[in-house]
C-alpha cells in the first residue's frame, strides 16, 4: 500500500474509533440511567450506604495512625445496593474494546505511512494519549479495579480529545524536523504519552470522586441531590473512586518523571543544555510539581479526600495547558507541531 493510502486508512480508522467510542459512551450512559432509576426506589438504602462509607473512612484513618476509634470491623459490611444488571453497559464495554483495537490500527498505520513513530506532532500525540487513557481504563475494568460504569464519563474527554485531534490539530503524515529525529523521541514521547493518558483518566475520576462526595453529603443531610449531583448515585462509592485516582496517578507519576528526565537527556543531546525553562519544560515541571503535591496531600492530615482530588484535577489542567496552550500560543523550542 502506498503511504498516501495508508495515511488515508489511518484517518478512516480514527474516525471509526471515535464513532465506536461515542456509541460506547451511550451504552454506559444507558446503564447509568437504569441504575439511577433503581436507586431512587431504594433511597433509604442509599443513605445507609453513604453512612457506611463514612464509617469505612474513619476506620482507614485509624489504620493510618490516627486516633484508634472503636469501629468493630468484624461485622461484614452490608452488601452494596443491588446493581441493576444492564446489557447496555456490557455492550458499551465491548464497543470500547473494539474501538480501542480500531484505534490501535489507526495509530500503527499512521506510523507506517510516515515511516516513523506515530507521535511526532500534536495530532498524533493527542490520538496516542487518548488511546492510552482508553487502554488503561480497560485494564482497570478487566482487573476489577474500576467499575465499568465510569465509562460513561471517561469516554467524554476521550471523544473530545479525538474530535479535536481529527479536526483542529490535524496534520498530514510527514517526516520530522532534524531536532526531533532521535531515538530519544521514541522513549521520551512514549513515556509522556503513556503518563498523559493515565493523568487524563485520573483527572476525570477525581472529578467523579468530587461529584460523588457532594452527592453523598447531600444524601447524608437528608436532601435529594439534583442534576448533575444526582448522577452520583450511579457511581462507585467515594473511597473506590479515590483509590482509582490514586492508583492511576501512582502508576503514571514515575513514568512522567522518567519522561521529563529523558526529555532533559534529549535536550542535552540536541541543544547542549538539559534544562532551559522553555515554556514546554516549565509546564511539564509545573504538572510534575502538582502531582507531587497530590501524592503529598494524601499523606498530610487535613488534605486527604476532596482537597487532594482538587489537586489531581488542577494537575490534569496543567497537563492540558502544557499540551495545548503552550504548543499553540507560546513560542518556544518545542513549538514543532
Amino acid at each position: 500500500m502506498s503511504d498516501l493510502a495508508l495515511a488515508g486508512l489511518s484517518d478512516s480508522l480514527l474516525f471509526g474509533a471515535v464513532l465506536l467510542y461515542t456509541l460506547a459512551m451511550l451504552g454506559f450512559a444507558g446503564e447509568q440511567a437504569s441504575r439511577r432509576s433503581h436507586r431512587v426506589s431504594a433511597a433509604a438504602g442509599e443513605r445507609s450506604s453513604a453512612r457506611e462509607s463514612a464509617a469505612a473512612r474513619t476506620r482507614m484513618m485509624a489504620g493510618a495512625g490516627g486516633p484508634a476509634l472503636a469501629a468493630p470491623a468484624a461485622t461484614p459490611p452490608p452488601p452494596p445496593a443491588q446493581r441493576a444488571p444492564s446489557r447496555a453497559g456490557a455492550i458499551g464495554l465491548a464497543l470500547t474494546g473494539i474501538g480501542a483495537v480500531v484505534h490501535v490500527g489507526s495509530v500503527i498505520t499512521r506510523g507506517f505511512a510516515a515511516h516513523r513513530v506515530p507521535w511526532g506532532n500534536m495530532y498524533e500525540f493527542s490520538s496516542a494519549v487518548a488511546l492510552c487513557a482508553v487502554v488503561i481504563f480497560l485494564v482497570l475494568v478487566a482487573g476489577r479495579r474500576a467499575d465499568r460504569a465510569l465509562g460513561a464519563f471517561v469516554m467524554v474527554p476521550v471523544v473530545l480529545y479525538l474530535g479535536l485531534a481529527g479536526t483542529v490539530l490535524y496534520t498530514a503524515a510527514g517526516p520530522l524536523v532534524p531536532a526531533l529525529d532521535s531515538y530519544w523521541i521514541k522513549i521520551h514521547v512514549f513515556a509522556a504519552v503513556l503518563s498523559s493518558g493515565a493523568f487524563l483518566l485520573s483527572g476525570m475520576v477525581a472529578l467523579l470522586y468530587l461529584l460523588r462526595c457532594r452527592h453523598d453529603a447531600q444524601v447524608a443531610a437528608g436532601r435529594t441531590p439534583r442534576f448533575p449531583l444526582s448522577m452520583g448515585s450511579a457511581l462507585p462509592a467515594a473511597p473506590a473512586l479515590d483509590r482509582v485516582t490514586y492508583g492511576v496517578i501512582a502508576f503514571a507519576f514515575p513514568i512522567w518523571t522518567f519522561a521529563i528526565i529523558a526529555g532533559a537527556i534529549w535536550a542535552e543531546a540536541a541543544w547542549g543544555r538539559y534544562w532551559g525553562w522553555d515554556p514546554k519544560e516549565t509546564w511539564s515541571f509545573i504538572t510534575w510539581v502538582l502531582y507531587a503535591g497530590y501524592l503529598h496531600a494524601r499523606a498530610t492530615a487535613g488534605w486527604k479526600g476532596t482537597k487532594a482530588a482538587w489537586i489531581a484535577v488542577a494537575a490534569a489542567g496543567a497537563l492540558i495547558v502544557d499540551y495545548y496552550v503552550v504548543n499553540i500560543f507560546v513560542v518556544g523550542f518545542h513549538s514543532y507541531a
Partner: peptide, 11 residues
C-alpha cells in the same frame, strides 16, 4: 503541610 504549600508556591 509546609512542604505541600511550598510545592504549590513553586508551581
Amino acid at each position: 503541610r509546609t512542604a505541600l504549600l511550598l510545592l504549590f508556591l513553586l508551581a
